[in-house]
Simulated assay, not measured.
Amino acid sequence: MNASKVAAAALALSLALSSASAFAQAAMASGEVRKIDEAAGKITLKHGPIKSLDMEDEMTMVFRVQDPAMLKQVKVGDKVNFDAERAPAGITITKIQKGK
C-alpha cells in the first residue's frame, strides 16, 4: 500500500472508533446522585429516561451497583452518566461515570 492509502485507512478507522464511542456515550442514561449507601451497595439517582430498560419517565430510584467500588467514584450532587441492566436482585448499575 502506498502512504495515502494507509493514511486513508487510518482516518477511516479513527472515525469509526470515535463514532462508536459517541454512540455508546449517547446510549448511557444521565442522572444526579441523591444518596450513596456504601454498606448496602446502593445508590439513589434522580434520572431521565433509561432507553436500554425501556424506561421513558424521569424519576428518582434506588439502584444496586455491580461493583461497590463504583460508589467511591461519585458523591452526592454529582451529575453522572450510567448503564443499568435488569438482574435477579433488581435493576443494577453496571457502569457509572461523572457527567459534564
Rank of each mutant, 00 (worst) to 15 (best):
V6P: 13
A7V: 14
N81G: 00
V74S: 00
R64Y: 13
T92S: 00
I96Y: 10
A69G: 01
A16V: 08
K95P: 02
M28K: 09
K46L: 07
A26S: 05
K35F: 07
A27S: 09
A3I: 15
L15S: 08
I93F: 00
K79D: 02
A24S: 05
I36H: 08
R34V: 07
A89M: 15
A8W: 01
E85Y: 00
K79S: 15
Q97W: 09
D83Y: 05
E56M: 09
P49R: 07
K72N: 01
A3K: 07
D67F: 03
M61V: 02
A24G: 12
K79G: 00
S4C: 01
M55T: 03
S19H: 15
K35N: 01
G99K: 09
V62A: 06
P68M: 10
N81V: 15
A24I: 02
G31K: 03
S30F: 09
A7P: 00
A22Y: 04
T60D: 11
E56Y: 07
A26E: 08
S14E: 15
V65T: 04
K72P: 00
K95E: 11
K79E: 00
L13A: 13
A9Y: 06
D57C: 11
L11V: 01
S21Q: 11
Q66R: 13
K42R: 14
T94K: 09
A84V: 10
L11N: 06
M61C: 09
L45A: 07
R64H: 12
A7G: 05
A9V: 14
G31E: 02
I50C: 05
D37V: 12
L17T: 04
K98F: 00
F82V: 12
T60S: 08
G99T: 11
M61Q: 02
A22F: 05
M70I: 08
G77N: 13
A26G: 04
A12V: 04
S19P: 00
I91L: 07
A26Q: 05
Q66S: 14
M59P: 03
A16D: 06
A16L: 06
K35I: 04
A29E: 01
F63E: 04
K51F: 07
V65E: 04
L71W: 02
M1C: 11
L71F: 03
A29I: 00
L71C: 05
A22Q: 15
L53M: 09
V76D: 02
K98C: 02
V80R: 07
K79H: 12
E58K: 14
R34G: 00
D78H: 11
A84Q: 10
R86C: 04
I36G: 05
I96G: 12
S14W: 12
T44H: 04
D37H: 10
M70N: 15
D78N: 04
G99D: 08
I91W: 04
L71Y: 02
G31A: 14
I50S: 12
V6S: 11
A20Q: 13
A40D: 08
E32S: 14
I36L: 08
S30Y: 07
I91A: 07
D83R: 06
D67I: 01
A26M: 02
V76K: 13
A20F: 11
D37G: 04
M1S: 13
M59C: 14
